[in-house]
């Protein structure tokens, strides 16, 4: 985005105004938006109580809550949580490093772009979740294939966004700082990388979403620990309440990581229009 508000002056007053609107909206959440979700949960509970939904198809919200408390109490849920989060953490770290480094190389250097971009673009079209059979052959059935799957899923969105962020840097800003005597390194640090940050953060959010998805798929296929194992194990005993607990934890983890990135975005991109 550019800041060319020339000719038609964009007045400074508009910024604080929109800020205060946002704040007041946050202070007063619109309770009307809660009516239908709560009604759905209530209907679900009634359907279970009256036997319309048998417990071997879907447990009632109340049973799910009790199962969650019980699993948390025995430590089973906590252990599974730690195992799954560790897998995502390691896989994300590896994938993010690969994606960002390749994105910078391809974005900054012409030869980097020639050499790195074509294979990455080709691999990107592969449905990477379909690689599980190969990964099992390569890495066995331990932690490695799950971590590799997460890493692979994470690397692509970050690569694409870092790459395009760097490629789309405003040449005018680069030229202006060159005229101010900036060296190549200074331009990289003070112009190119900050300009690529908004795109990078978009890539970060996408890749975290993919990371959880990859983990869920990876853990469904084979696992002897973690949230996926908890869910698969529960299936054998028709414990739909435990399955739902596992799903809710997955969802919560996805939401929390997304919220963290949003927070980082708000802090790092304060200079942009709200």
């Amino acid at each position: 985005m550019s800041i060319s508000t020339l000719g038609a002056p964009a007045r400074a007053e508009s910024a604080p105004e929109s800020l205060s609107v946002k704040k007041s909206r946050r202070r007063l959440p619109d309770l009307r938006r809660w009516i239908s979700p709560l009604a759905i949960v209530a209907l679900w509970q009634i359907a279970c109580e009256t036997g319309v939904l048998p417990p071997d198809k879907l447990s009632s919200p109340w049973t799910v809550l009790q199962a969650g408390i019980e699993l948390a109490g025995t430590g089973e849920l906590g252990d599974a949580f730690v195992v799954s989060t560790t897998r995502v953490g390691i896989g994300f770290g590896i994938g993010a490093l690969i994606g960002i480094v390749l994105g910078i190389v391809a974005g900054l250097s012409r030869w980097g772009n020639y050499l790195v971009d074509p294979p990455v673009q080709m691999l990107r079209t592969l449905p990477f979740l379909g690689l599980i059979p190969l990964f099992i052959l390569w890495f066995g059935i331990g932690e490695e294939p799950k971590i590799a799957l997460v890493a692979l899923g994470v690397a692509f969105p970050l690569y694409l966004n870092v790459h395009s962020g760097i490629r789309n840097v405003d040449d005018h800003l680069v030229e202006a700082t060159t005229a101010l005597g900036f060296t190549r390194t200074e331009r990289l640090v003070h112009v190119v990388l900050p300009a690529a940050l908004p795109n990078t953060l978009v890539g970060l959010r996408q890749s975290l979403g993919v990371a959880w998805l990859s983990l869920i798929v990876g853990e469904q296929v084979n696992a002897s620990s973690g949230l996926g194992y908890l869910i698969n194990n529960a299936r054998e005993f028709l414990r739909t309440d435990v399955i739902v607990v596992g799903l809710v934890v997955y969802a919560a983890l996805g939401l929390v990581t997304d919220a963290i990135v949003r927070l980082v975005e708000r802090r790092a991109l304060r200079w942009r229009a709200a």
């Binding site: 800041i3 060319s4 508000t5 020339l6 000719g7 038609a8 002056p9 964009a10 007045r11 400074a12 910024a15 304060r270 200079w271 942009r272 229009a273």
Partner: peptide, 8 residues
Amino acid sequence: AWPRTLSG
């Protein structure tokens, strides 16, 4: 101020 809040 941030540059975006300035007039042309």
